[in-house]
Design a protein around this nucleic acid. Sequence first.
DNA 1: CATGAATGAGTCTTCATTCAT
DNA 2: CATGAATGAAGACTCATTCAT
Lengths: 232, 232, 232, 232
Amino acid sequence: MVYKRSDRTEERKDEKRKLIFETAAQIFAENGYHQTSVKDITEKAGISVGTFYLYFKNKEDLFEKLYDETAQMSSDISKYAIYEKKSETVAERFSRAVTASFWTFQKYKDLARIMLIEAVGLNPQFEKKYAELMQRSYKEMEIVLTELKKKGLVDIPDAKVAAVAFEGSCMTYITYWLRTDDKSDLNAHAYSLIIFILQALKVNFKDEDVKRYIKDILEELENKKDRFMKFR
Amino acid sequence: MVYKRSDRTEERKDEKRKLIFETAAQIFAENGYHQTSVKDITEKAGISVGTFYLYFKNKEDLFEKLYDETAQMSSDISKYAIYEKKSETVAERFSRAVTASFWTFQKYKDLARIMLIEAVGLNPQFEKKYAELMQRSYKEMEIVLTELKKKGLVDIPDAKVAAVAFEGSCMTYITYWLRTDDKSDLNAHAYSLIIFILQALKVNFKDEDVKRYIKDILEELENKKDRFMKFR
Amino acid sequence: MVYKRSDRTEERKDEKRKLIFETAAQIFAENGYHQTSVKDITEKAGISVGTFYLYFKNKEDLFEKLYDETAQMSSDISKYAIYEKKSETVAERFSRAVTASFWTFQKYKDLARIMLIEAVGLNPQFEKKYAELMQRSYKEMEIVLTELKKKGLVDIPDAKVAAVAFEGSCMTYITYWLRTDDKSDLNAHAYSLIIFILQALKVNFKDEDVKRYIKDILEELENKKDRFMKFR
Amino acid sequence: MVYKRSDRTEERKDEKRKLIFETAAQIFAENGYHQTSVKDITEKAGISVGTFYLYFKNKEDLFEKLYDETAQMSSDISKYAIYEKKSETVAERFSRAVTASFWTFQKYKDLARIMLIEAVGLNPQFEKKYAELMQRSYKEMEIVLTELKKKGLVDIPDAKVAAVAFEGSCMTYITYWLRTDDKSDLNAHAYSLIIFILQALKVNFKDEDVKRYIKDILEELENKKDRFMKFR
DNA sequence: CATGAATGAGTCTTCATTCAT
DNA sequence: CATGAATGAAGACTCATTCAT
């Protein structure tokens, strides 16, 4: 009996946290971090300011948690795309990875803005965190590329440069795509970008294979949606 | 007599404007736009708040002017690199363009941060301006790539996607480079990135040519420094 | 439980609003609108600046509300004096009206200053509002005088001119009276002014009646004080 | 020779002073004292701020001088109207005085605003000066009325009250008139107001005489314009 | 005499955060 | 747990006045 109540309480707590999370994500995406006041969030969420501070240490803490969770989610999806199914070719591996990014940010447009725009010049403290995350992501890619280079599966003069350029072209294009085109035609956009990247890395691939890889991973992700969606 | 005085006065005004500009650039770069108060700028510049408002309408106006002038300068240098010397090969053209970007942002590290980081999520009004500038830059590149594709000099499925990915990989890498490595070894970094891009576009090139292109444009820019450096 | 708290809270809010109102009225009266800073008001009221902006949009908003409420109160009292008791003679009607003005501004000396002095040349926006209120008041008096002129109860060449001159002599004298004499001897002052006006309008009257009219309305107003006093 | 130059210099000084005076009068009238900056005045006058402070101690000093000179001019005209020609009747005396006020403020609409609107709630120091001037003016009128009352030429219970009410009705009406009607039909307006006042004071008069008095003094003033117009 | 760039105290206003209820 | 009134530090901006040229 006691347990039950506690559980329900826990549940409620989680619900409110989620509510704040999602509301904040939306407002941050609409107006930007600095143009969003705590009151804006609480009013839209239908709670009091006091309650806000019951769930988050402060405004920055909320943003950080939002960022972390988004990053985690994005990373999870990415990991799934790359590791869940042993890719048969390098082209498949990268096709799945890039397409997964498209899918993620399309599904969570608000969060894309938070990850790729708001987080960028927030403040020196957060900057560091952001930079570290980027570093880590570049590093991971660098390791992969170094490995593949050794095996002769990619041909690039510098794995680090290629890693950053890879991620940069991806993120920049997705940002651009979300800003203009209304998330339509994901397939076509992903395809063109993947070709750009595969060519850049001098990976062997066949066009029709790439198209199939994209189709496959998109289907998989749609089916396993619930597994990744922590909120919203 | 009156003329002389007026001239000297005008000169001093220009100098002060420059002083504010450079001071602001530095502090914005260090602490970020929102973490920088007008007082921070004036104190570091050794002037009074009143004087600040004599030269700029407000803080945002200063930032916008800083951004515009940086963008202009960057664009000038880029144009020089591409058009001043009729490039003999596509590889030369892109090598010169990319290297010029490296050179510019290395010379004006503060401003690079302002252009590439601070400007990103500033506020809805500026956001629009920033987006438009990006659009324009992508569009220009798209036109170039479309042309070259017709001539069979590049091989990409979609000129627009390639254009954005090109610029994205460039800017992301330069940002990364400036954040970590202290602008050393520009040559090596530029080289690797150029290869990445030339491969992505399937442009024909020879390694040693690329290296020469880089060396040449860097030399030219160093010689013509004064022509581009509006401030600092 | 929630209700009670909410009620008490509402009550306290009203009290605080009143507190700011009254404090502001006093300081505006003492030092003038432009010489009064928001800090002056909050310090004297013993609240923080933030609290001020919780109750009023800004300094001008406070002034405007103060003005409006004062105008309303003054108008209410005036209406009471004129319409509550069907006056038997024109002399009685005007005696009651003029005396009511004296009584009002004597009771709310601070607000009199705000209505008659501070509001005058405040700023173009408020100027318009002020002018409109005056216009309306003149217009009302003009209608009354036109009516009475038709009935042969007043004798004046131009009802509009008489209306403005009537109000002007009243307000000017009350202002003068408040500035010098410390609100003593209201009866005598009101009497002399009423005679001036009744003569100007060529209204028939008997001295002793006028004296009685004044006495009566003053008594009535003192008894019904609570009905009119919105604050202070 | 030295004299001549000095004279010319003096003349120039006076001219510039006048220029500032007139420009200020106009801007104060348009936008109000507090909404007018020293820069506004100097820019419109085509001089530098420095020059402004060469001729006036500060902004308030300018206003005060403007006020004083206006008051002096108004007083001069008033005195001329009353004393230059020995009035044959009380009605003539007051007709001339009131009409002169109309004429003055019509001629100097800017200054009317400064005298009657801007001066009112300026600041505690000026307030005192303004009050004193009013007192003096009321006092003078009171003396006149007391005299006439003794002689049985006016019939009022209290000379002081009548004096203030007299001035108040006059000034209020002129203010109203200037605000609405574009100074047209001075004759008709003056006539109605004079009747109001003469009736209030129970002065004997004939309508056609009053009309003649008005006509006469207006003619005289137009002819002697140059004698009174210190500026503008 | 004239200039106008420079000054900086003074104001308004916002908003993240706290805490009594 | 929830509330939202209260806080006050912090920041943007203005403008009367000065003074070196």
